[in-house]
Design a protein around this nucleic acid. Structure first.
Lengths: 219, 219
DNA sequence: GAATTTGCTGTACCGACGGTATGGTTTTCA
DNA sequence: TGAAAACCATACCGTCGGTACAGCAAATTC
């Protein structure tokens, strides 16, 4: 039946907005069903309990984000054969995508859930961590491909740079919301892009210069 | 009276741990008072409602973080006269501080509250946003001081780099918790440190800029 | 076109929790 | 010693998550 899937989707849509605005624990089922125009029985027909709602929300979120990354990376590769250029294009696309949202980014479900981990079972947490690992892998692969062509600067681990994207996005979303300025997120992604650009740019000729006399800062 | 402040502090301690683990909405007063060994009346003697608990938690968190930053920046300045070096030392200290926590960073209260904004009144949100603005200002000042000595690379806004610290920390905390790996946070701060280092290092030769005469920043 | 499944509504109820109220008791300090 | 501070005890209300069960209309299948 088509109608069942529609109602289910509507519930998820409303629930996601509420979770991102108030947190999962403070999201009341009664409020969701009131907005969805159904009864409590209708809700429990689709989700046997609140935890299954969480699971469905998480799965939906991960799938949508996967699609977004698929698209951005694919279009980056289409627009340039050079791995560095195509990655920089991908980052630009992602920055624009997140900056163009009318009311700012609605929020990262994984971030909220991570800050409410005690509310969910192992299953939901595993979906989230697997997704994060997969996204980190994407960026690590792209960066390694660049590193095969351009020599990366020493002292910076590719794995950390890969993880930095998600970190900057999650942090950027929080600061955008906290300061009420949607631009922060977009500019943070572009700042990360500058970092990547510098990382693979030809090294400065500092090797030929006298050794630095700063023992403290050196690890 | 001394004992009242002690009890109040104990309540805040327990409540903060619960909020960071389950979210504010899911933190039950009954659970807090049970762990604190007081009655419900005792709780409402200290806080007239849950929102005032939120306000107190936020104020406490902001003050403690202010102290941490004060200390880190001060020690950075003590260990070097060079603005870049002292800032890099400060970042190193902050990275170590957050990495040395036995069970990983407990979480950023501002991040949780931002993801549950609908639960708090304007006052609480203002405390949070003012604190973030103040911290951003700290980093912006430090970076501007560096930029007066070392030429920053073009195309990167100092303000964005300043904000990036908090973003990377918030994102790093989330990923550390999500992946169950406390090291992520520390390494992300160090990755940000590498970014700052590169930013003020002499420009690469392919860019048509006069060769930098300050090799000290490069290491 | 009868039977079954899908997709709900309606009602009733339980226990936990946030919050209020009120009155009492001990501890602490001036 | 007396007042303020720092609680405790009890009772109560409304909301919410969750369960249980009975029913019913529309769609689908046989």
């Amino acid at each position: 039946m088509r109608k069942g899937a529609e109602t289910r989707e509507r519930i998820l849509e409303i629930a996601e907005a509420s979770v991102l605005a108030k947190g999962f624990g403070a999201t009341s089922i009664e409020e969701v069903i009131a907005e969805a125009g159904i009864t409590k029985s209708g809700f429990f027909y689709h989700f046997k309990d609140k935890n299954e709602l969480a699971r469905a929300l998480m799965l939906r979120y991960v799938e949508e984000n996967d699609r977004i990354f698929d698209d951005a990376f694919q279009r980056g590769r289409q627009l340039s054969d050079d791995p560095l250029q195509s990655f920089l294009i991908t980052l630009k696309l992602l920055a624009e995508l997140m900056g163009d949202l009318p009311n700012g980014h609605p929020g990262c479900l994984i971030a909220t859930f991570t800050y409410q981990e005690r509310l969910f079972d192992r299953n939901v947490r595993d979906i989230a961590s697997d997704a994060v690992r997969s996204w980190n892998g994407r960026f690590r692969d792209a960066l390694n491909e660049i590193a095969r062509v351009y020599p990366a600067r020493e002292g910076v681990d590719i794995d950390d740079v890969a993880k930095m994207f998600s970190c900057v996005v999650d942090g950027g979303i929080i600061m955008s919301r906290g300061l009420g300025d949607p631009c922060v997120l977009e500019r943070q992604i572009l700042a990360f892009r500058s970092f990547v650009k510098m990382l693979f740019a030809p090294a400065a000729p500092d090797i030929m210069l006298p050794p630095a006399s700063n023992a403290v800062a050196a690890e």
